[in-house]
């Protein structure tokens, strides 16, 4: 089919797609760098060399060294595995709890729905960050407990998002048709319902990933997340705090890393929302 449009209109339509493509490439680049980080890191990120401490940027250590003489570039690269990798893990786990709970809650309704939604309401009554601090404080510092705490906080919004989509779709006639046609509930959910939910979820998850990265970095900054000597961006910020006046790169490099990744994810989320035509939540 040939669609005739004035030139300027075509341009405006094409641009967001180009941006979206760019953002996906950037995100892909970050993920690849994260995956191959141990292979391309020039030094061992935990190797302490006290004679080489607080070196500025040079050809030997591209981003300088920290207060223990560890190579900052290597720590940023390998630290991405902790920060970005853990955040992705949190989102995946939150999704795999939130999606089924939302589907069941919205589709079956009744007492089960009320039960799940009261839990959700209770969890939503507190700010995310506070619950995460309390939980990881109670469970003790460490990455495993941090993931656990964040999943407990995060699955809630996915369950609600899925539930509301399911409830509004459930009133459409094609779901009635599918029921009349004798399809089992599992088939109705998997083939006629889940595709509706996916768009919303992708947009929400990409925006949420940025937030989770910030929370992980923040909790590690206050010592509840990654424990030394594991490289992690938030923890690196904290370690660099005492040397800020002499060696500001100890703080601004991990800071820039966090900012770039979160910025890319937020832009990606916004562009996806426009592209997938998801209603503003």
């Amino acid at each position: 089919m040939i669609v005739v449009r004035p030139n300027n209109v075509t341009k405006n339509i094409k641009r967001p797609q180009f941006k979206l493509f760019g953002m996906i490439v950037l995100l892909g680049l970050i993920i690849i760098l994260t995956l191959v980080a141990p292979l391309i890191a020039p030094y061992d990120p935990t190797e302490v060399q006290l004679t080489e401490r607080l070196k500025p940027m040079s050809s030997e250590n591209l981003l300088g060294t920290d207060h223990m003489g560890r190579d900052i570039l290597s720590r940023i690269l390998v630290g991405a595995q902790t920060t970005v990798g853990t955040s992705i893990l949190v989102i995946v786990l939150a999704l795999s709890i939130g999606l089924p709970v939302g589907l069941i809650s919205g589709y079956i309704g009744g007492a089960l729905d009320r039960f799940f939604m009261r839990i959700v309401d209770a969890l939503l009554a507190f700010p995310d960050f506070i619950i995460a601090i309390v939980l990881s404080g109670l469970l003790g510092p460490g990455m495993f407990n941090l993931v656990l705490a964040l999943v407990v906080v995060k699955w809630v919004s996915y369950a609600r998002l899925v539930r509301s989509t399911v409830i509004s779709e459930n009133q459409k006639e094609y779901i009635a048709v599918a029921k009349i046609n004798g399809l089992s509930s599992i088939k109705i959910l998997s083939k006629h319902m889940i595709p509706h939910v996916v768009g919303n979820l992708v947009v929400y998850a990409s925006l949420d990933l940025g937030k989770v990265i910030l929370v992980i970095a923040s909790l590690s900054y206050i010592g509840l997340g990654a424990q030394p000597p594991t490289p992690e961006w938030g923890a690196m910020l904290n370690e660099g705090r005492n040397f800020f006046h002499n060696a500001p790169q100890l703080m601004y490099i991990p800071g820039i890393a966090i900012m770039l990744v979160v910025l890319i994810l937020n832009l990606l989320g916004d562009l996806l929302r426009d592209r997938l035509d998801v209603k503003n939540k």
Binding site: V177, I180, N181, G182
Partner: peptide, 21 residues
């Protein structure tokens, strides 16, 4: 479930909603 769709079937008012989009 065996009867619905096979022996009893429906046509609705809203044709746009009759098929999953």
């Amino acid at each position: 479930r065996r009867i619905r769709g096979k022996e009893i079937s429906y046509v609705f008012q809203d044709y746009q909603g009759a098929f999953t989009p």
